[in-house]
């Protein structure tokens, strides 16, 4: 039961509560960095690291942080981690730093991180929060990678910068533009909505102990 709970915490970020496609958080960095697979993965990993760290930290501090100033506290913590990650990336992976550009510091205002801090980490123990961070981060990274794969392969005719034979001749450049990003985004939201709609019904009983059951059900209903 308990193991199941942990697993639920870890995996639900991937599809069922996918931060980008189901919770519709972090759309801006998603659209901006999903033009190529390399930036998408970089962004996903950077955001995941910040997410895990801030989740653990906020979970540890959840009893100390007074309700009235919790948002400023979260922001300071998140901003601190982002700055640390930024400096580390700049120093040791300068190419990724250039590629991520302005989106790296913008992780501070990535609503996935603040959203999970507010929705999850502030109510759960550090282990659960870390797992949630891993799950959500994984979901974010996977979504970005899939989206970037679609956009880069069809839009630029390459994958991870490697030119693909057929696609480089017949590409759809609009997919690399914001409009194409929204299009792919919309298609993926629709697809995931379709998938989760069936799944949630099926596994409803298995998730009774899941703390997010209520939210899950509500989301499934809305979807």
């Amino acid at each position: 039961m308990k193991e199941n709970n942990k697993l639920c915490t870890l995996t639900r970020g991937i599809i069922k509560e996918n931060p980008v496609l189901v919770l519709v958080l972090g759309t801006c960095p998603t659209l901006a960095t999903s033009t190529s697979v390399s930036t998408a993965i970089g962004m996903g990993i950077a955001a995941t690291i910040v997410l895990i760290c801030s989740n653990i930290f906020i979970s540890l501090l959840r009893k100390i942080i007074p309700d009235s100033v919790r948002i400023p506290c979260y922001i300071v913590v998140i901003a601190g981690f982002v700055s640390v990650v930024q400096m580390l990336v700049q120093a040791f992976v300068p190419d990724l730093y250039t590629a991520l550009g302005v989106y790296l510091p913008l992780i501070v205002v990535n609503c996935i991180i603040l959203g999970r801090a507010e929705m999850f980490a502030s109510k759960h123990n550090p282990l659960d929060s870390a797992l949630d961070g891993v799950g959500m981060g994984l979901g974010f990274t996977l979504t970005l990678t899939v989206m970037a794969t679609i956009r880069e392969v069809l839009g630029s005719g390459s994958w991870y910068g490697i030119s693909l034979p057929f696609f480089s001749t017949y590409n759809i450049p609009i997919l690399t533009k914001p409009a194409g990003g929204f299009f792919v985004f919309g298609c993926m939201v629709a697809l995931v909505a379709k998938i989760t709609h069936g799944k949630v019904k099926h596994t409803a009983t298995g998730c009774t102990s899941c703390p997010n059951q209520e939210a899950c059900a509500k989301l499934a209903k809305e979807a």
Partner: peptide, 20 residues
């Protein structure tokens, strides 16, 4: 709490900056 968190984060940043 806010002042404490702010100070700790600042300290952490200063440290990272020194390294990087």
């Amino acid at each position: 709490v806010l002042v404490l968190i702010g100070s700790i984060v600042t300290g952490a940043l200063a440290l990272t900056n020194q390294i990087t």
